[in-house]
């Protein structure tokens, strides 16, 4: 099978869907000629023209509102939000309008909109361009949240999201755009709400979203060398969340670490850990460990920034402790 980069996969998904359905259009800052700062949408304006690949002024609330209106009236917009940090600018359009319209119109209106944006630190972009804010939107009923963890997921989830009749927010890790993975040439879809078990294990379940999937896989490698068998699960979407697969795994292993790049406080890790604790409590042989980003604004200093995100070594260290029966985070 061929290998392509994460950004090529996203590009292919958008192009295929734009070819198939003329209602699909792309809008955002620098999406046309510049092809976004990450070169994800390069080449699309040449094929589809400036009517369907629309560069906007630096006015996130404006173009987000425009896209919500377009979606309500029959179009299928893909909104490109250059940095996940800019979500704060589009909160009303996204959370008060897009998320609630289908419900509040008694089902008469739909908002088939995809908001693609990014997350991830360690790109030396400082505190306002390095946040992972998916928990913020995952909290709002009416929004689906996808977190592709490789080029394969990026394409399959994007195609499903574009065809979904509800607003879907896709968070891509900006450090993964150049990572390659095997992606079939033939068309495929990844359903929203279907987790992927990447590695079978018996001693501990490592649940990792987005780029933290790789962190968990590397941790599992380290642990495997020491005779600890770790199961690795990528939820792929956190709304809807494939709870059944996660719970089933934890029932088998009795231990879990949830790893995510959002801040740990009140975050995605907390939600998943809580569901495990609530629903398979009597199968747990150790406290469920959350590992999120440190609860500080992401530092610009490279040396400090690297300390704020979970690492394979850190995950392996916690895994070792709880498998050995040592209390982690004991009171």
């Amino acid at each position: 099978m061929r290998s392509i980069t994460f950004s090529q996969a996203v590009n292919e998904a958008i192009a295929e869907e734009m070819r198939r359905d003329e209602c699909v259009f792309l809008i955002g800052e620098d999406v046309a000629e510049a092809g976004t700062p990450f070169k994800v949408t390069s080449g699309l304006v040449e094929e589809f023209g400036t009517d369907r690949v629309i560069d906007t002024p630096i006015a996130e609330p404006g173009f987000m509102g425009l896209a919500v209106g377009a979606a309500m009236t029959g179009a299928r917009p893909i909104v490109d939000l250059m940095f996940g940090d800019f979500l704060f600018l589009v909160m009303d359009q996204l959370c008060n309008q897009a998320a609630k319209t289908h419900y509040m119109s008694g089902g008469k209106l739909q908002v088939p909109l995809v908001l693609r944006t990014n997350l991830g630190a360690t790109r030396r972009s400082a505190a306002q361009h390095s946040q992972s804010l998916h928990a913020l939107v995952a909290h709002i009923p009416g929004l689906k949240v996808a977190m592709p963890s490789s080029a394969y997921e990026a394409k399959g989830l994007m195609k499903t999201a574009i065809r979904d009749d509800n607003p879907v927010v896709i968070f891509e890790d900006k450090l993964m755009y150049q990572d390659k993975a095997q992606v079939p040439e033939e068309e495929y879809f990844i359903p929203l709400g279907e987790a992927n078990i990447l590695r079978d294990g018996t001693d501990i379940t490592l649940i990792g979203t987005s780029s933290m999937r790789q962190v968990c896989e590397s941790a599992a490698e380290l642990l495997g060398e020491e005779g600890i068998s770790a199961e690795v699960i990528d939820p792929r979407t956190i709304v809807p969340l494939d709870e059944a697969k996660i719970l089933e795994s934890v029932k088998k292993t009795s231990r879990a670490i949830v790893v995510d790049e959002g801040h740990q406080n009140f975050g995605t890790t907390a939600e998943i850990a809580a569901r495990i604790s609530e629903k398979v409590f009597y199968h747990l042989d150790a406290p469920v460990i959350r590992m999120g980003a440190m609860d500080v604004p992401v530092p610009f200093s490279p040396a400090l920034e690297d300390l704020t995100v979970p690492t394979p070594e850190g995950v392996a260290e916690n895994a070792r402790k709880i498998v050995a029966g040592e209390l982690v985070h004991a009171l």
Binding site: Y282, H283, L284, D285, A286
Partner: peptide, 16 residues
């Protein structure tokens, strides 16, 4: 020291 009254620190699974 009736043993059922003592609180023993154990994991939920171990207790079950």
């Amino acid at each position: 020291r009736p043993s059922t009254a003592e609180k023993v620190l154990a994991s939920p699974k171990a207790k079950r």
